[in-house]
Structure formats: C-alpha cells, structure tokens
Design a protein around this nucleic acid. Structure first.
Lengths: 310, 310
DNA sequence: GCCATTATGCTTCCCGTGAGCATAAGCCTG
DNA sequence: CAGGCTTATGCTCACGGGAAGCATAATGGC
C-alpha cells in the first residue's frame, strides 16, 4: 500500500525551538527578523532526525546544543507550505543552548521570548493586558456561545487557562493559552480580525508561534523534574542567578529560601570556591553544576521548587 | 533548499500502540500473529496525522479510540523499511480503547503486553528472570567495560533501570530497560546473539517492541496525573476493578485503602447506585467516571497513587 | 556609622502519602 | 446455623516535603 499510484509527494522539515536564557529573560533563536523559528529540510545525509537538527543548528549558532528533545510532528493538510501539491511533515524540536552571537548574514537573531507571549510573564504580577484586553475578550466569547452548557464550558476553559476567577495560574499551560487566543481570533495569526483589538505580543509566520508555545510548555514542565536549567547557565553562577533564570523560564517569582534549600538538598551544585561581589549586598558564593548527577539520577526526579514568592 | 536535485524520496508511516485493559493485564492490538504493531501509510486523504490514525484504527477495531496522543517520530537511516532508496518517517501514536473482537481476516489480535515485557510485571514481586538471567547478564556487561569509570557507569545504569542493589523500582523506565537490554544484546532484535541466553519475552518485527516500550512508559507516566485510566474501563466498575486495571498498567501492587482515598478525594467517580455481588466477599458499590472532571480539570493534576501495597 | 541590599540559617505550620487497625457484609463449609 | 474466609469501607497515626516567615551576616553607598 505504501507505493500507491496517486502518491502524494512528501517533504520533511525540521523546526527548532532553541532556547537560551539570561537573568532577565529567556531568549529564543529566530530568523527572518524575529518572525520565524529556524527551520530546514530534513536531508538524506542526516543519520537521524535529531542529528540532523543538531548539525543544522550548530552550524548556525556555532554553539553546541546541550539538550535536545523532540516536541511534536505536524502534517495538517491546511499547513501545506510552499503552495505545491507537496505535503509537508514538520518535526519540531526543543534545544537548549547558551547565547552566542549569531552568524551575520543569516538573518538569525536572539529574541526575548516574552516578546511573543507577554501574557506569560507574571514575575511582576499579572500583566495588565490580561485584565484589560484578554479577560474581557474571552468573557465576551464565552457569553456568545450557543446554549448554557457551551457558555459554561467556555468560561471554565478561559478561567483555567488564564487563572481568572479563583483559579490558580498554571505556567505550564502556555500552549492551551495560545490555542485559546487563536480559537477566539485574538491573535493575528488566526486571520480573522487583524484590525480588532487583539492580544498583545508579536506574531510569527506560519504556525511558528504555536510551536514556540509548545516548547515553552515543555520546558516549563521539564525544569521541574530534570536538571536541564544548567544547560542554560554559565560554568559558574550564584544561586540567585540560577533562581533568576528559573524564574525567567517559568514566568513566576519564587521563594528564595525554599529555592536554595531544594537545590542544596538535592546536591545539584557544588561550590567553586569563588565569590562574587554583586551589585550591592553581601557577596555571593559561586557554584557549578555537579555533572555527576546526570549519571546518578539519569532518570530519577530532580525537582525545582515552583512555589510563588511572598 | 527544499527542492534539491538529489532529492530523497520520502514515505510516512503511522504506527499505533493501541492499549486496552482488563483486570488481569493490559492488552495491545497487534497484527501479523502478534509480531507487529498495526501500522499504515500516512495518506494524502488524511486531514492530519491524528485523524489519519484514528480513522485507520477505528476501521479495524470498530471501536472508537478514546484518547490519542503522539508518541515519537523516527527517521533513522538504518531504519529504512522496504529496502528501497526511500526514506521512511514513522510517526507513532498511543491510543486507548476498550477491547472488542478484531475483524477476522485482518490478522489483528489483542495480546497481553507482558508477553513482550515479562520483566515489567512486578505485581507478584520481582520476576524470577530478573535475578536469574537479566541481572547476571547486565553485571557481566558492566564488568566487561573498558576502564573503571565506564564500568561504574554501566553498573549504575543497570541498577537504576532494573532496581538492582538498593535502587527503587521505577515503573516508568520501561523504555530505558528495553534499550539497555537491546544495547547489551539480550533481546533477539539486537541481532547479535540469537542463540545466547537472553532476556525472556516475545520479540517483535522491526523496532516495534521499542515503540511499545515507549508507549508503556508514556502511559505509566500519564495515569499518574491525568484521568486516562477511565478510557479503559467499562461504564460501571467497582473500585477494586479500577485498582486492578491501574495495577495491571503500572505492573505494581497498590495499597487499597490509600487508592480509594485518593480516588474519593479527587471526586473522579460517582456511585451508579448499583451493587455487584463479587466472587465472594462483601458486595461492592458500582461507580462511573464523572465526565465532568474532564472539563473542570482539563489540565490540572489528577494523581493516582502509586505507592506499593503491603 | 547608618541604611539598603543580598546571602544564609532556621523554625513553624499544613497537607499529602504511606501504613495499618478495625469493622461491616456477603459467601462457603462443616 | 455458627465460624471462617474474603472483600468492602472507615479511620488513625507518623513522617517528610513544601510553603512562608523570622532573624542574622556581610558588603557597598551616603
């Protein structure tokens, strides 16, 4: 059956969500003036999907990708790229790296990821746009549903996704939030109402912003049980720097003392012996990641505290 | 770059891990006399990968798939199926269903999943084969490593994967276990030593047993935080029946009272009002799944207790 | 020297989980 | 028909981790 007569021509494409981070914000590698994620064809020379992606990204960033993980494979019919009769299968990956200057002329650049998802950053509390724009729009959408059950379901979905009413904010729901905004026409990618008052945040080409949302969700979930944050850290760092990076990724503030306790108890780091005179305040000790835990706890749990501060 | 001259021809294939379960064991849908997972080409008529898979499986089992989730996409070069110059991309899915008679003539049949992974069933304690065959073989493999660090690393990997020494058994590591057995040549799929004393369990064609191991790992992880078990249950069931199914999936015995407490506290089920006169013992109440939780907790946590009994 | 700022150590409270003890309700056996 | 066996259910207790706060130690800036 595989070789039918009316065979569709297939193409395969790799799309990468490459994440780096500093204490201020997570950064993602983009192309086309920040409007697309890096992507490239899956070529016959590639040994496997993952090695293809690795080679491809490292060529551009000149920096090795530490951690790489497959995100999702899409092949929706309405997703045909390039306009031909060719069906494209897109395989997306999440990769972690350290930020380094991009090769000039490639159009590649690093961007703050909250530029695309302003509503995902709650480190300074709930962004105003949620209350002034998003919540009202979702409320209207819920009310416009046919029949009470549908209306209730919509209101409930919105409340869970955006932590409205008395629901708690769940930082891992970034994909659901984007999908909800897409479904309700609040992001320009949905086409419908480019003029209408929509959600804030820069759009991307194709469905790249959705893929980015998938990557954010995956990474936010992952940092809670695997020591992957360290892939984003410099060789030596203070505990506060580590906390700031985790907070930047999660988009939430953490309780300092508990964060330190958890890191300490799990023996994730060891002192380098050095100290650093920060910008005011008592000097902090420098730590490095204990590479050994990658072997010891190859799979076991390594939880990061995600309890809100204050 | 997408349309190069020396273009590799691509084919895409969908592979399904379809799981059902009874109180005795989880069951998987197979073809070719239990030696392969159902798979089929991804056709141009399919709207999306998932809808393609759904249509395809439902046609064969005549039963709707409740829950469907993408597992992984492979395209390793050494995985070329069919021998041609054609590169195959395989997209695997996990699906949950209720067991129903398979359509005759299709070669499809349901199989106990522990037939392929005897070492994954610890409901009656550690299977003898681990102590008599697997642990010694892994021990020899570890000792044969070049250099002390490699030997230590190997011993550690084996201990973590199979819960040797003082390590706790982690039921979610089914994929790592299979990969370890593959790497050490203990499963016939590895080719090397078909004659040597290997691990027990029926092999499968291609890399299907590895895909099944991936599905098992995913499902075992999933039942802990999402109410997916109910997709496998009949409309009404006793709490013990529910527990038995969870135990069958996890391959571990659970503490009865705690299991009930957790189910009760989360309000996952409601009484149907009926009772059932079991095989001896006090009659049990019948319950049904509260569909409402799917909306209420569309994403929040729904944990199943996986604490060992006794 | 006093203040602002950050680093660190410890303590308390609360809740979920892991384990058992005890009782209720049928069925089966002698 | 009583006693024993088996499964259903209710409850208690102890422990450990997580969430919040209080308190003290170092520095640099005024």
């Amino acid at each position: 059956m595989t070789g039918g007569a009316e065979e569709t021509r297939l193409a395969a494409e790799l799309i990468a969500v490459v994440v780096a981070a500093n204490e201020a914000a997570p950064r993602i590698l983009t192309v086309e003036d920040g409007k697309a994620l890096p992507s490239g064809p899956f070529e016959s020379g590639h040994r496997s999907l993952q090695s293809g992606l690795r080679a491809w990204v490292e060529e551009r960033t000149r920096h090795p990708l530490g951690f790489v993980e497959q995100l999702y494979t899409f092949a929706d019919r309405d997703r045909m790229v390039g306009g031909g009769r060719r069906r494209t299968i897109s395989i997306s990956y999440l990769g972690l790296a350290r930020e380094a200057p991009t090769a000039p002329g490639t159009g590649a650049s690093w961007q703050d990821w909250y530029r695309y998802f302003p509503w995902e950053d709650r480190r300074e509390g709930e962004p105003a746009a949620i209350r002034t724009v998003i919540a009202p729009a979702l409320g209207a959408w819920a009310k416009s549903g046919d029949g009470a059950p549908l209306r209730r379901e919509r209101a409930e979905r919105a409340a869970i996704a955006f932590g409205l009413n008395h629901q708690a904010w769940n930082e891992e729901l970034s994909l659901q939030r984007y999908e909800l905004l897409y479904e309700t026409g609040l992001v320009p990618e949905a086409g419908e109402a480019a003029g209408r008052a929509g959600a804030p945040g820069a759009p991307m080409l194709h469905d790249h912003r959705r893929i980015l949302a998938t990557g954010i969700a995956r990474l936010r979930a992952k940092i809670k049980y695997r020591p992957v944050v360290f892939e984003l850290m410099p060789p030596a760092f203070t505990l506060l720097a580590l906390q700031r990076v985790v907070e930047a990724l999660a988009g939430v503030q953490l309780h300092k003392q508990n964060f330190r306790r958890l890191i300490a108890r799990q023996e994730l780091v060891e002192e380098t012996g050095g100290m650093i005179a920060e910008t005011g305040g008592r000097p902090a000790r420098l730590f490095r990641f204990r590479r050994a835990v990658l072997r010891e706890r190859a799979v076991a749990g390594t939880k990061l505290p995600l309890a809100p501060a204050r």
